[in-house]
Amino acid sequence: MARQIYQAIVDGILVGGVYALMAVGLTLIFGVLDIINIAQGVLVILGAYLSYELSVRIHLDLFLGLLVTVTAMFVIGVVIQWAFIRRLRGRERTSMTLLVTYAVALIIEGVLYEIYGPNPKQLNASYVQSSVHVLGFYLSYIYLYGFVLALALVVAIYALLYRTRFGRSVRATMQDETAARLIGIDVNRVAAVTFGVGVAVTAAGGMMFGATNAFNPNSGYDLISRLLAIIILGGLGSIGGALVASVFMLTLESLVTIWSPEWAIVVFYAALVVVLVIRPAGFFGRQPVRAQ
């Protein structure tokens, strides 16, 4: 029994890494643009299909393929922001962006459905099936690699935000948009690039999700509700919070699954409610949204 619990904790932490890859972009976009990108779930699935294409058609390794898919998703993100979100201003902006990003989700889902149909796909590679036995735990290679990738990407985003001139302009825009404009920051460019980065990260999340789950064009909906729960729990706009909340939620779910897989999903959202009652701003959220 104890061994089962330990294994569940290890699994939860590793799967949490996969969710962090998907949630980090969502919270980054919220932190800077102050919008919830409902399309993030289906963008994860789009990322998975892009990886699928590269892997099936030109037999490119899943991780190497990320060089292509991350770049492609960055461009897609910038285009979505430029075409749909940039125009929304004024008091209705928050509710309008929810509708617009939902529309974007429907469009992408429709296109994917048209191309691939409803049958589920899964990404494959030698390391997807195999696992290593360490200290009595079975660690699947794909989750190990994915967890390392998640940590690397979180560190990279931190470096971008805290070590570069562009990062300073992003943090300034996050904290006070008018003041940022008044010191000469092009806040439209900051918004476009941030949205691009937030979507680019989901390419990695999509690959990991697609390698560890069967997916079809509808899979984005279950994902977005989970991702929203995670970023709220972590503290909206907090990148470190998204990582911690992913690991926390998935570990909890993995533990409850030992007893009851049905209850695991309920516990996922129940945990959100309980934490928010105790800490209304989530783990790392403070009154104003900040990048921590």
């Binding site: 300073r168 943090r171 300034a172 904290q175 006070d176 003041a179 010191i183 000469g184 104003p288 990048a291």
Partner: peptide, 16 residues
């Protein structure tokens, strides 16, 4: 001012 940044960072950002 950018509240989460230091005074020095704020002043440097004046020269962005």
């Amino acid at each position: 001012l950018f509240r989460d940044m230091t005074v020095r960072e704020n002043i440097e950002l004046g020269g962005y």
